[in-house]
Each structure stands twice: as structure tokens, then as C-alpha cells.
Amino acid sequence: MPNPDPSGPDTTPGSVWELKPWWCQPWSIVLTGLFIVGVSWLVLHLWWLTTGVAVVIGAWWWLFLVLMPAAWKQSQASGGGA
């Protein structure tokens, strides 16, 4: 009988994003970051604080949208996947 679970042991996901819930997808990460920067500006109107928030959000994006998928891809290529 075939495995009805698409994420079962017989399949290898093509992307790390296939393993993540909706709230951890690239679109939700980007929208959340933009929302936080926008709210920072709308509420505080302090360019230096909003810039600091944007730098932190940029680092968050770099980590989760660039480095983490690249590390996952490298892990899969080297046979380190589950």
C-alpha cells in the first residue's frame, strides 16, 4: 500500500520550504518584516530607530531566507538529510 503522507520517508522534499508551516514561508517572513519596519516608522517617527529595526530585520531575512536554505541544500547534497 502506498504511503499517503507526502512528507513520509519515501519522499525527499525539493526545498526546505516544503518542510515549513505557512507562518515560516518566505512570503510571511518578508511581510512580517515589512510590517514591523512600517509600524516602527508610523508609531515612532524616529528615522534612527526605524533604521535600527530595519537592520535587524535585514539580518533576520539574511539568516532565514539566504543562509538557512543554502545550508539545507548543502546538507541534502552531502547526504546529510533524514
Rank of each mutant, 00 (worst) to 15 (best):
M1F: 07
M1N: 06
M1E: 07
M1L: 08
M1K: 06
P2K: 10
N3G: 04
P4N: 06
P4C: 07
D5S: 01
D5V: 08
S7L: 11
S7F: 11
G8Q: 06
G8N: 00
G8W: 05
P9N: 00
D10S: 09
T12Q: 07
T12N: 01
P13H: 01
S15W: 03
V16A: 02
V16S: 03
V16M: 10
W17S: 02
W17Y: 07
E18W: 04
E18K: 09
L19R: 12
K20M: 14
K20V: 01
K20H: 09
P21H: 07
P21C: 08
W22C: 08
W22S: 09
W22D: 12
W23R: 06
C24G: 00
C24S: 09
Q25F: 06
Q25R: 05
W27K: 06
W27E: 06
W27Y: 09
S28P: 00
S28R: 03
I29Q: 03
I29H: 01
I29T: 01
V30F: 02
L31A: 00
L31R: 03
L31Y: 05
L31Q: 01
L31H: 03
T32R: 05
T32M: 07
G33M: 01
F35S: 13
F35P: 02
I36E: 03
V37G: 05
G38A: 11
V39I: 14
S40L: 02
S40A: 15
W41D: 04
W41Y: 15
L42F: 14
L42H: 11
L42Q: 13
V43S: 14
L44C: 11
L44I: 15
L44A: 14
L44K: 11
L46W: 14
L46S: 13
W47T: 13
W47F: 13
W47R: 13
W48V: 04
T50D: 12
T50I: 12
T51I: 13
G52P: 03
A54Q: 10
A54L: 13
V55K: 09
V55R: 08
V55M: 14
V56F: 15
V56N: 04
I57L: 11
I57N: 01
G58C: 05
A59T: 07
W60N: 02
W60H: 00
W60R: 03
W61R: 02
W61K: 00
W62V: 05
W62P: 01
L63T: 08
F64L: 12
F64W: 09
F64D: 05
L65P: 05
V66P: 04
V66T: 09
V66R: 14
M68E: 14
P69S: 04
P69W: 05
A70M: 12
A70G: 10
A71Q: 10
A71F: 02
W72D: 01
W72G: 04
W72H: 06
K73N: 14
K73A: 15
Q74G: 11
Q74T: 11
Q74W: 04
Q74C: 07
S75Q: 14
Q76A: 12
A77F: 07
S78R: 15
G79I: 03
G79T: 05
G80R: 15
G81P: 05
A82I: 10
A82K: 13
